[in-house]
Every structure is written in structure tokens, then in C-alpha cells.
């Protein structure tokens, strides 16, 4: 059984429609790269899965349970429930808690009581993925640099025992070297029977690291990028 199955997803904000009737299936143990230019719907697709778009339509089946459906208002009202059912999102712009310490930020990711009890172990495993965070635990998250904030945001997502990890633009706004390290670390995480979707503009960062790559263009999923790199929207051309 596939872990996530999207059928006929349309979504947008107000009169604007961003996603056009797209289908996507993610298998267990799969690391999926989602590439495409700015404004072609990558972020919206990830937001749609957790119910953060203005309106949406279409079926989203996560582990055999329907979490999508038609919705025209109540942005984010279902999000906590969806997140609790096992989908962790590291959103664009990080959305970390600036007044809390890095430790508290990470702990806040462990929202189920089981993961809360084992939060120390989880924190340690996040630190093995992102070693720089180890020294920053006591520091307030508002004072971190861009790369560190991104690590906190992704680390917070890793603190949960989710089945599906959604990472939005891990390289956005970071120096190439830092983003390289970050993505490399992301791609080495053991996801077991879960799955991970990484949305990314920078194609070479993901090449060879993910199991499957899809291109997004104008709100639709294009061919597998592996077969038809030339078909991928200008991003590919721009990057090479």
C-alpha cells in the first residue's frame, strides 16, 4: 500500500488557482524530490497535504485514511490533526519560535505523549544529523543564522515519529555550501518505512540523492525528471 496517494488535487488562494488536478503517489521508504521553479506550486502542494491552502479539492489518502476533501475556508483548522496523524512539515520560512531556546524548539516537535517521553533520545539523534545544533541548545532561536534556523526547523520535523516528512526548500536563502551539507544530511536520514518529499528549486542538489524526482510546472506534475531532464521547466536549464 502506498503511504500517500493524491488524486485530482486542485488548490489555490482566493480566486487564484495554483494546483491543477494533479495526481501523485508516494511509496513507503521512498525519498521523493520535487523540483520546479518559483511559483509553480511546490510549496502549495506541500501545504495542501497538511491543509494550509486557501481552498482545496481532491482526495488525499494517507496510510489508507482520507485527510483531504473539499474545503473552501478554515485555513489550517485541520492542520494539527493531520500533523498528529503522522505528517511532519518543515515549512518555507522555517516558522520556528524565536523566543524559545533551540532545545524548546526541538522539543515542541515531539507532540505525541510517546515521543515527548523519549524527547531526549530524539534530540540526540537530531543532533547527530545536524551536529552544529549540539552547541546551540541553550541559545534563543531568534538569534540564529539562516542555516541554523533551517536546521532547527527541519530538526523539529524530525523530532516527531511521523511517517511522512515534507521538507520545503531546504536550500532557500542559504549559501551553496551550507545548503549542500543540509541536503546531504537530509538524504542520509534513515526514514525506514516512512517517506520524505523534498521540494527544491536547485536541481543539482538533489540529483543522485533521491529515489525519484518529479518536475512541477504551472501547477501540474510533469514527467519523471530522471527520464526527461530536458522537459523539466527552465530550472534545469538555468542550473546547468
Amino acid at each position: 500500500m502506498s503511504i500517500l496517494k493524491l488524486t485530482g488535487i486542485s488548490a489555490g488562494y482566493g480566486p487564484m488557482r495554483v494546483l491543477h488536478d494533479l495526481d501523485l503517489t508516494v511509496e513507503p521508504g521512498e525519498r521523493l524530490g520535487l523540483v520546479g521553479l518559483n511559483g509553480h506550486g511546490k510549496t502549495t502542494l506541500l501545504s495542501t497535504i497538511v491543509g494550509l491552502t486557501g481552498w482545496q479539492d481532491g482526495s488525499i489518502i494517507f496510510e489508507g485514511k482520507e485527510i483531504g476533501g473539499r474545503r473552501t475556508h478554515g485555513v489550517g483548522r485541520k492542520t494539527p490533526g493531520i500533523v498528529r496523524s503522522g505528517i511532519a512539515l518543515a515549512p518555507q520560512g522555517d516558522a520556528i519560535f524565536p523566543g524559545l531556546s533551540v532545545k524548546d524548539n526541538l522539543d515542541s516537535g515531539a507532540y505525541t505523549s510517546a515521543s515527548w517521553r523519549s524527547r531526549k533520545r530524539r534530540r540526540d539523534s537530531v543532533i547527530t544529523v545536524f551536529p552544529p545544533l549540539g552547541k546551540l541548545l541553550k541559545q534563543s532561536a531568534g538569534t540564529l543564522s539562516g542555516g541554523e534556523r533551517r536546521m532547527v526547523s527541519v530538526g523539529r520535523a524530525l523530532m516527531s515519529d511521523s511517517k511522512l516528512y515534507l521538507v520545503d526548500e531546504p536550500s532557500l536563502g542559504l549559501a551553496p555550501k551550507i545548503s549542500m551539507g543540509l541536503v546531504a544530511a537530509l538524504c542520509e536520514i534513515d526514514i525506514g518505512e516512512g517517506a520524505m518529499i523534498i521540494a527544491e528549486q536547485n536541481l543539482p542538489l538533489l540529483e543522485g540523492r533521491v529515489d525519484r524526482m518529479l518536475g512541477m510546472h504551472a501547477g501540474e506534475i510533469k514527467l519523471d525528471v530522471g527520464e526527461a531532464l530536458g522537459d523539466v521547466p527552465p530550472s534545469a536549464g538555468g542550473m546547468h
Binding site: S10, P15, M16, R17, H20, D21, W55
Partner: peptide, 19 residues
Amino acid sequence: QALHRAAQTTKYAEFLPQQ
């Protein structure tokens, strides 16, 4: 109206008039 229009275009339109 906007939502209706957006929902309608699922199958047929190349793009929405707004786009």
C-alpha cells in the same frame, strides 16, 4: 463565483481568465 469558476476549469481550460 471565483471558486465556481476555478472548480469548473478542472477539465477544459488551458488557463483561467485570471491567469
